[in-house]
Design a protein around this nucleic acid. Structure first.
Lengths: 234, 234
DNA sequence: CCAAAAGTGTTTATGATACACCCATGA
DNA sequence: TCATGGGTGTATCATAAACACTTTTGG
């Protein structure tokens, strides 16, 4: 190919990534927000974000932003949606590509970077964030709910070993809805992606609850047949 | 708010929108591609695209691109995904936000702009397009299939009045799969969004087939209960 | 021994699938 | 009258939902 003129660059814009970081603390679904230490909107709650660099793609930028805040790598990240309202950022024309991340809060000992004033909030009770971040969070939750029905998100949100109660709590928290224990367990078992270990977690009862692990191989074998954890959404 | 320094602008990039334009000609689902009249990749098939301007948001840019090619306004457009591989466009660093559009090919007398060499292709038989457009098209088809199960896309893809056969052909074409006529019709009727008119289309049979219309009010009333046109995807 | 959480099955209801014949009409 | 596409109903099967009691054990 011969030399080609570069495109007219008068319309170049800043591209940001913002991360909706979901975490599960083995009881409730949480959302990680930071208190902004810079203008604009200093002191207000915000999603963790950053600008896309010339040397990276969007997935990489989102991973960098996430690592910057949590120190974690190889975390589940999925692109959500791109936001482009002209004045969404009062400083400069910026479009933002939102990503959402899924983290098991205690699987890793998360060291939230001291550079940031960050806090986990319950997914049903968090402060109003800046800009259009509220829209992003709502859309991420919708996406997470859909994903939870067709993909074993417990892989990402639960520790290595977990009890059925924890798995059920995760789903109840995501859907903000009580689920019948018997139906839930028999459905989950029938999906055939869990391995029951010999171990018990005695931290919440005298009897103790068996610990389970996800089996990625089983999941990969079975996923052709479809994975569907129907939960009635009234 | 006081004057705030603009963000460092060394990392500004071009933002493009590319439109995956689906159309239904009352027989098969089609895809509209253009033959590029400019470098790079002149003469190859491509999605219709354009660059985001400072004065518009992404939805507006996509609508402008679509109007530019087809002359149509108020067409269903949905943002699909943002593509950002560093060298995806060989000329300059560009990220592209893909949108997909749904058009009833004969509901409007589409005047494809003579400025473009455009052509409708069958969704199962189209030429390999440039850059990452093939990935975009595949993702758009996945999205369309999901959408078809939960939203009456016939609103967008069919003419004002249509026969059950046309509606079924649309779904068979989208899913590339034969569907049982009796099951399909009774399922569609049960969704309670169609109005049967007194008119018949006699163009394909001596007996004639009743024409139906979508009823947007019925749809809006019923959608709280969910809209689900289960089609077995083997 | 008892409080508290873990564990376990069955029945019913709903919805999906499979399947085949009659109808209306213009040529 | 007959060829062609239009229109219709039922029986079976799979899965979701509703529902309550027994087990275990540390304190």
């Amino acid at each position: 190919m011969n030399k080609i003129k570069r495109y007219n660059s008068t319309d170049k814009v800043m591209v940001a990534v913002d991360c909706i970081i979901f975490g599960f603390d083995n009881e409730r679904l949480k959302l990680l927000l930071i208190k902004r230490s810079f203008e604009p909107e200093i002191g207000k709650w915000s999603l963790m974000g950053g600008f896309l660099k010339k040397s990276e793609n969007l997935d990489q930028a989102a991973a960098r932003v996430l690592k910057n805040l949590t120190g974690l790598e190889n975390i589940y990240l999925e692109q959500l949606y791109s936001y482009s309202k002209i004045d969404r950022d009062p400083v400069d024309r910026t479009i933002s590509v939102a990503y959402f991340a899924l983290i098991s809060i205690d699987k890793y000992k998360i060291q939230i970077s001291k550079d940031h004033d960050a806090k986990w909030f319950d997914i049903n009770d968090y402060p109003k964030p800046i800009f259009d971040h509220s829209k992003m969070i709502k859309k991420a939750l919708v996406r997470l709910r859909r994903k939870a029905l067709t993909y074993p998100i417990g892989f990402e949100l639960l520790p290595e070993k977990f009890t059925m109660k924890q798995l059920q709590d995760l789903y109840e928290s995501i859907f903000n809805k009580e689920i019948d224990k018997r139906n839930f367990i028999s459905k989950v078992i029938s999906l055939n992606v869990l391995i029951k270990t010999e171990e018990k977690d005695k931290s919440t009862s005298k009897k103790g609850a068996f610990l389970y692990r996800f089996d990625e191989n089983k999941y990969n074998e079975n996923k052709k047949q479809g994975y569907n954890l129907s939960i009635k959404l009234k």
